[in-house]
Design a protein around this nucleic acid. Structure first.
Lengths: 327, 327
DNA sequence: TAAATAGGCGCAACCGATTGCGCCAATAGG
DNA sequence: CCTATTGGCGCAATCGGTTGCGCCTATTTA
């Protein structure tokens, strides 16, 4: 209750100083004696005083908010990913005294984004999932609003932070090849997603001239079932799944077909998650750290907001988890 | 680019009016002639002028933000629920010209909540998942910050919005009984969650004096597997699952045991979700509308913020989906 | 020793809105 | 016809910070 309405004036009065001195003591800008500064800092610490961000923002023309913009439609698959990623964003933002304002957009409806930007509620924006010819990107570019894309986008001239999917998939694939895989099958999802293309590219680069078979747009159980059947007909010795959910469906199908992993064939996933936690044997997979990705993205946005020059493409690492499914 | 930095002064100057008149025209408060008002409204519409919320907030002592506070730890189960719910919150907030600031808290770490409240970044808070002896609730109560809990809590004297789980579960259960179920088994999850208790209560009320068997704290596949075995040993004719995830594991186990649904036994879930979409036969379940819940919650919070008196417990409806799994 | 420089701090303008008050003109009431 | 009342609008204070500028003192420099 004590800090109910403490203002900088109260602090100044209590310490027999002027607002300016208090303000400068807090920000560290300007010429202030060390003792005075320490006195102020101690006092505000003790009284738990926090500058009103509205007033601060008003005079600095800053909101100390970043926008977190994600698709509002159902996308259960990536929900976990986004949640972890958001956690990283929140952490990084907090470190810079920023907060995160969340809004959703649809494929053709970016009104949510317009609201938070036109209303001057954010200093910059992080774009979750992007599409080809993305309206949100176009809008932000046109308005000159600082923004960063987390994840893959084909759009040029955009600052993006992503895991290096091509490199990661290439590495895992070439390890599989070294382990003796000769006829691998790639089962991928929605080709509309940019990341699907990257993973496929990595797969092909890693497999080089080996025999492969590729099945795309496996967006539901039926399609996956068929893909697995085709893979088996192809005589595959290793099914490589684009992501965790597809892998889950593949494992289910293999069980139904009474095929043993890894004795009958190997299985690997290009994306690890909790969904893959329960299998015996455990699934070889690529592991990323979404929280780290969110953190890096937010830090990048902060840099952009503060007028620093940053590279257009920031790549994050990965981890190859070799488990029983590819023994 | 046109609205780059339009202020109320610009509007006033352009129209040959004073700031006050413009402000009053927009808010509708005070005495303004209809023509003048319309002129202002037309002009700001055309030029797409938006009052700076920082300035507005500063003079009104409002932030026009609500805080959305959810647990930061992993909780894949309810992720989808929270996402839909959040969508409802965002929609309702936008309607009142509010935005949503998101932060996460841990069991013992409410620093995220403290940050947004002490920094005066929100006018009120929506609490996602709550615990017994919840620190966040205690803190908000003590500080006198407006807040609403979405979902169940045992805490007294707290404004909460929730689906009526007891009634819903009672109704579904009694329908099952009418359909001839004589020995039902309830498989529930974490008893630490308040909602588990509500569902169990509804189950027991619906079953009245019929033979039942109850298995709780089934928080992983192994526990669920055992629970199903016990249920079968009990001679159950219907397994009632507390939620979608448990139901999923139950279905898996039944498949492993080569038991047919609904011929060998019936299956029902107290919580419907996409996870239950792929089964044949489809699963009888209770369906809620999380988006509606979020909307209602946010509206309630708005009312609290605006000093209106609201009832402590707001209940939302449900839908009973009778499908093949209980034929 | 005088002049230049640097350090420490306060004054007051400013950010962009809201709102109490007062002024003036038009209308209503006696 | 003169005085209340009311409607329409502007002035200026206010919200709680930041920051350019200027003043005074203490220290360097010539």
């Amino acid at each position: 209750m004590d800090n109910e309405k403490t203002t900088i004036d109260d602090v100044a009065k209590a310490l027999g100083l002027s607002k300016s001195t208090v303000s400068r003591s807090i920000s560290g800008k300007g010429r202030i004696s060390t003792e005075t500064r320490q006195k102020v800092l101690d006092y505000i610490e003790e009284r738990n005083y926090r500058p009103n961000p509205l007033a601060k923002g008003l005079s600095e023309s800053k909101t100390y908010n970043v926008g977190w913009v994600i698709p509002g439609d159902d996308h259960l698959t990536s929900l976990y990913f986004y949640q972890r990623c958001l956690q990283g964003v929140i952490n990084a933002a907090a470190k810079a005294d920023y907060d995160v304002l969340i809004t959703t957009i649809g494929k053709d409806d970016i009104s949510g984004l317009k609201r938070i930007t036109e209303n001057h509620k954010v200093d910059g924006v992080i774009l979750g999932r992007t599409l080809r010819k993305d309206k949100a990107i176009r809008y932000l570019k046109e308005k000159g609003i600082p923004f960063v894309v987390v994840g893959s986008t084909e759009e040029k001239g955009v600052i993006q932070v992503d895991n290096d999917h091509v490199a990661a998939c290439r590495e895992l694939t070439s390890i599989l090849k070294m382990k003796g895989v000769k006829r691998a099958s790639f089962i991928g999802g929605d080709t509309g997603q940019v990341v699907t293309g990257s993973r496929l590219q990595g797969f092909q680069e890693g497999m080089e001239d080996a025999r492969t078979q590729i099945c795309l747009d496996c967006v539901n159980k039926d399609r996956v079932d068929r893909a697995v059947e085709e893979a088996v007909a192809f005589g595959t010795d290793c099914i490589v799944c684009e992501d965790d959910r597809i892998c889950q469906m593949v494992m289910e199908k293999l069980k139904e077909m009474e095929l043993e992993v890894p004795t009958d064939l190997k299985v690997a996933s290009f994306y690890d998650s909790k969904l893959l936690g329960n299998y015996k044997p455990q699934i070889t997979a690529l592991k990323y750290d979404p929280t780290e990705l969110g953190k890096k993205t937010c830090e990048t946005l902060m840099a952009v907001i503060n007028g620093k020059k940053v590279e257009n493409r920031q790549m994050l690492g990965y981890e190859v988890l070799l488990k029983g499914s590819t023994q």
